[in-house]
Design a protein around this nucleic acid. Sequence first.
RNA 1: GUCCCGUUCGUCUAGGGGUUAGGACAACUCCCUUUCACGGAGUAAACAGGGGUUCAAUUCCCCUACGGGAUACCA
Length: 503
Amino acid sequence: MSVTVRFAPSPTGGLHIGGVRTALYNYLFAKKHQGRFILRIEDTDQTRFVEGAEQYIIDSLKWCGIEFTEGVHLGGTCEPYRQSERKALYAQYAKELVEKGAAYYAFDTPEELDEMRTRLEASGVKSPQYNSITRNTMKNSLSLPQEETQRRLDAGDPYVLRLKVPRKEEVRFHDEVRGWVVIHSSQVDDKVLVKSDGMPTYHMANVIDDHTMGVTHVIRGEEWLSSTPLHVLLYRAFGWENTMPKFAHLPLILKPEGTGKLSKRDADKFPQFPLEWTDAEGKTFKGFRELGYLPEALMNFLALLGWNPGGDEEIMDMNRLIEAFSLEKIGKSGTKYDLAKADWFNQIYLRKKEDSDLLPQVQLELEKAGLGRRDEAFVLKVISLLKDRVTFIREFVHHGRYFFETPATFDEDMKKSKWNEHCPNWMREISGVWEGLEDWTHASMDAAFKAWAVQAGIGAGKVLPALRLAVTGMSFGPSTFDVAELIGKAETLKRLRFAAENI
RNA sequence: GUCCCGUUCGUCUAGGGGUUAGGACAACUCCCUUUCACGGAGUAAACAGGGGUUCAAUUCCCCUACGGGAUACCA
């Protein structure tokens, strides 16, 4: 059977980094096996629905380079792909479960449920459950006389459907990353399958969808490991156990500091969203895109967060990741979210790009910084001079302002340590020497400068820092001669004379 | 509390009954560069603890500790 996987987020907000990684692993696995990859929207909780979230998820994944073969935005043979539009299907299967005696109606109000829990706790039960024992004391179609159940149903009393979890049954399943997991059915409670608003819960919708969509591998976060026995029980109840998908539970991404799993609530502390996201309160969070991360760098970083092919190889583009990916090599332990390495990946991928690929974004950054749009050839040269020195595209501005405007201020530390009382004169002399230059190149400037230094009896090392300060206003950067060559003779001489008067 | 999962340098990880426990990021040092990066060479840095099994355990088993997850009519 061909591989079918799915990514099934809830449209409850911005897609966070953990979700992106889950989607990525599913994508890599699907591609590797030339299988189907479905985008399904799990919107069964109408109270948590967030407008725009679905489109955001689609846009984000697209930016990441994660592509689906079918789904809510593409259509496909298993439509609809939005769970809220599959209600009729779930109702039909729910009915089947009741008829089989695998599920039952429960009429208990939230207050009665609370009461049951406090009563049980008072009598020493550590974790009160609605289960094979306690369900007899509650109001449901198992404990109530049949006529009473029917009467309530006919009267339109609110009810939920619960799974009748067997009292003594061993549930075991093989997890592709963790091996065999065994749990006794007594640990599983009679979970709600259909809520009183008629919507299925995640558990039921998930099982029905995965089955009807032909999903072969469920690759999801570890937070689902605990409820997998319930899902197995559901497959069993439906009689689908022999075609049950394989499970692979991914280690969680943990907060970089302190403890706990990463959550969207931490988004103001460190970037978590692929694209800029504005939440319900109107708070806007920058995405990786806005922060200047390259999607290929992000994907490489994310792929290696919890998975490793087993060697020293680290720089892997999407094709290479697909080729190397396997479920067995997924790690078991949680992983701290430390972006330092992501920055390094970004630097690597930035350097791999052609200067011309960087041009549009650099131009954009220049414009944003108020430096205007410049001649392409000129900017291209700036890029080649600066590319090895930056991690993010936006840094071209910070590192290279002086290419676009005459420096108005000069680095203070540099001034203190390298600018002495002779400097103004030196600058004037150098500008005089350079003024006579026929060709304005790095080489000719260098030669003229050295000749002047020798003749004046001054060590080049004494003057060069001052020269840099005069031309760029900064303490670091490419060779001053390169800068001078690019900005041109007139501008360079102007800067030298300005510096002589003003530093 | 209970159940489940986990634990190798600060971080991401490789490895696996006998290894000088490997790599990468970050840090630091040196070289290159009359700057800053890049590049190169180094330094420091880890098998959670205790019991077994074994000639031998970081690797297998058990316990403890610690971390995480789940315990909803959320996903």
